[in-house]
């Protein structure tokens, strides 16, 4: 019980720390916006990938639908971006529910492959359906209305919008960390057959998780579209983006509240630091780190940290239980 509110306090502390970012790194606002957006989207990915254990490599599709919905509604119908964002969230959760309904009968590598296939098909549609999406030339968000006089293309405004989005994503996974729904997801991840014996319907639970993950990812995608202001299928619908979100969550620590955020800070920060050395090859760091994490710290940075703490504070916890069966 107390643990739960300690986590909530930590979320507050993390968000407060982030609010200082524009003052500390005024010249690195672009990086800041990308960090909070990717932290939020990786957290959203983690609802399905980490908490429910359903590794998706197709989340770029959801980012893309979110971004395209906002942009197209704005460009073609003059609908303000906040409605576009909500419409994108609604649309992606419906798409994800249908997508999940089709692919969740597949387990293991087959599920992963199917997410890639669906996302790739969607990318090809976006490239070819030129009348709707502008095809490979992409879309350009030239102007947007100014809610409360705020310029949505101002990096500081974008940063705080992104931070609000990250805050919501963190609150959602905080809820997962103690609620019935969250435990149902973890049960499915740990052992689907066993979960069924506990009264959990795996398919409907996974579909709900996918829809929730999708809606949040789309919200991030909408903000990302505003940040980019010009985007095309190779940016927001590419499998590379799907892989990036998954690796951020995994390297930070899948299925933990703060893992994806830590992953985003570490990976995007490092990629930025080394950009001058590696130019376009900045994903090299992702590759090296995921190999190291998989090999040596399967629970990611967060898990590795916990193991370290435990080693330092007390001996290994593997003590056999001596059951007596009496009431103590």
């Amino acid at each position: 019980m107390r643990e739960r509110f300690k986590t909530l306090a930590w979320i507050g502390a993390v968000l407060v720390a982030f609010t200082l970012y524009p003052w500390i790194f005024p010249t690195k606002l672009n990086l800041g916006v990308v960090i909070v957006l990717f932290a939020g989207m990786a957290t959203a990915w983690d609802i399905l990938g980490g908490w429910a254990g359903q590794l998706s490599l197709g989340h770029a599709a959801l980012v893309g639908i979110g971004g395209y919905t906002l942009a197209l509604l704005s460009l073609r119908a003059g609908i303000p971006p906040w409605w576009g964002l909500l419409a994108g969230m609604a649309l992606t959760s419906v798409v994800a529910a249908m997508w999940g309904w089709i692919v969740f009968r597949l387990r293991g590598p087959y599920f992963v492959l199917s997410t890639i296939a669906v996302a790739e098909i969607l990318r090809l549609v976006a490239i070819n359906w030129k009348n709707l999406t502008g095809g490979a030339e992409g879309l350009f968000l030239r102007e947007l209305p100014r809610p409360f006089g705020l310029d949505l293309f101002d990096r500081t405004v974008e940063f705080y919008l992104g931070l609000a989005f990250l805050g919501i994503a963190l609150l959602v996974v905080w809820w997962l960390s103690w609620s019935r729904f969250g435990y149902s997801l973890q049960a499915i991840r740990e052992d689907q057959d066993s979960a069924m014996a506990m009264g959990i319907n795996p398919t409907s639970t996974k579909i709900l998780a996918f829809a929730l993950s999708a809606a949040l990812t789309a919200a991030g995608g909408s903000l990302y579209a505003i940040y980019l202001s010009f985007f095309e299928p190779h940016i927001v619908l590419d499998i590379g983006l799907s892989v990036e979100l998954a690796l951020i969550a995994y390297i930070g620590g899948a299925g933990t509240v703060f893992g994806p955020t830590i992953g985003a800070v570490v990976l995007l920060g490092a990629a930025d630091l080394f950009r001058n050395y590696f130019q376009q090859a900045n994903l090299l760091i992702y590759g090296i780190l995921i190999i190291l994490v998989v090999r040596f710290a399967p629970e990611g940075i967060v898990g590795g940290w916990h193991v370290l703490l435990r080693r330092l504070t007390r001996p290994a916890p593997v003590v056999p239980v001596e059951v007596r069966g009496e009431r103590p």
């Binding site: 916890p317 593997v318 239980v321 059951v323 069966g325 009431r327 103590p328």
Partner: peptide, 19 residues
């Protein structure tokens, strides 16, 4: 009831077979 209360905060993987 089942005598597991003293081990409530242990990871399940750390229990022995009886546990």
């Amino acid at each position: 009831l089942t005598g597991l209360a003293p081990f409530a905060s242990r990871p399940a993987a750390s229990l022995n077979l009886a546990g």
